[in-house]
Design a protein around this nucleic acid. Structure first.
Lengths: 194, 194
DNA sequence: GTCTATACGAGGATAGAC
DNA sequence: GTCTATCCTCGTATAGAC
């Protein structure tokens, strides 16, 4: 992220930040302009100046989230970490959200898929597609280097599904260390450090 | 299920059936008494006779679902199928819901967890706990018989998370055969038939 | 950019007739 | 058991003043 040097965030960004936390916690249907209004400190009507409709707001939200995810993946790629370390760092992206008891924005919206407008659906599909492509590429490198054997594409789908599923279960299992218990042993087995 | 011999379902059951489909599709916050009213063919107010509040309705819904799941698991246990076949049948329970593009009721409600009243949360926790216990037991039997090696508890958590996650991804991946692609090869590898 | 005021529909829930 | 009628709150969105 860019260092703003202590500058205040602009209102649109504040709105997106609050909206993001709310969607990740409650889902699309259970957050409102009134909620945002209260936390940002402006009136409901003022939000419409920045985002004309709720659908528009959420579309921008997912777009920002998707771009942030891709930047995080790129940083992993450009680090000089070994491939197994890169796998671990990727898993950490999901674990980090869990610390604040928040699941992936797009996992939550995947659950709400049936009630979403098409532009938002498109952004979500793009998110999963890009993530899967990135992970497939990483797995392929490991296959090429004979670090592990796998079928990269289906393995990538499976890992992403596992991460999303663990996040989902973790909130109803209330504070147990499910992520560590499930994911870490699996990574260590499948993707051993040389 | 019991053969009703052509008898009509009573109204309470019809309400639960419609509510279940709606919650699985749209989640807790995005279905209403008006929706049920329309599909069952009675007025909104009449629903309150059968279920005094929405929270009460959903609590009963999850309870019924949980009991149905446990009955299905018991049938698998009591069949004379081999352990790997039992694993496969368990996976089919999740796959079946997917055919109607519906995810597990409790996976959906796990996403909505933050907005649920406590009694519903308790039912959901019970669902996952009972499911995990059943699966852990099956895995343990396989270990004892040296059919496969594993740590049953964490393996059970991982498998359930995977199934829920695949269901979630499948709806935004729109019609691709993700479940077959991800789950079947994994089962075949981990739990080979003798 | 943010405000007040307001429109308008949908949400869950209740009272009381039949 | 189901109905009509109604209540009250909350939802998104708009108009127009400042």
């Amino acid at each position: 992220m860019v260092d703003t040097g202590g500058m205040e965030k602009n209102t649109a960004t504040q709105i997106l930040d609050v909206a993001q936390e709310m969607v990740r916690n409650r889902g699309y249907s259970a957050f409102s302009y009134a909620d945002i209004s209260q936390q940002v400190g402006i009136r409901k009507a003022s939000i419409h100046y920045h985002f004309s409709t709720k659908d528009e707001l959420v579309k921008e939200l997912v777009k920002r989230y998707r771009e942030g995810m891709m930047r995080a993946c790129d940083r992993i790629t450009q680090s000089n970490a070994s491939l197994d370390q890169q796998m671990f760092q990727f898993a950490q992206l999901y674990r980090n959200g869990l610390e604040e008891e928040q699941i992936c924005l797009c996992a939550m919206l995947a659950a709400d898929y049936a009630v979403l407008p098409q532009p938002v659906r498109d952004e979500i599909q793009a998110f999963f597609q890009e993530t899967e492509t990135w992970l497939t590429n990483l797995l392929q490198q490991g296959c090429d280097a004979q670090l592990w054997t796998c079928q990269p594409e289906q393995e990538a789908k499976g890992l992403i599904a596992l991460f999303q599923g663990v996040q989902l279960l973790a909130r109803s299992a209330a504070g147990t260390t499910t992520f560590e218990q499930v994911v870490y042993p699996l990574l260590a087995t499948k993707f051993p450090s040389r």
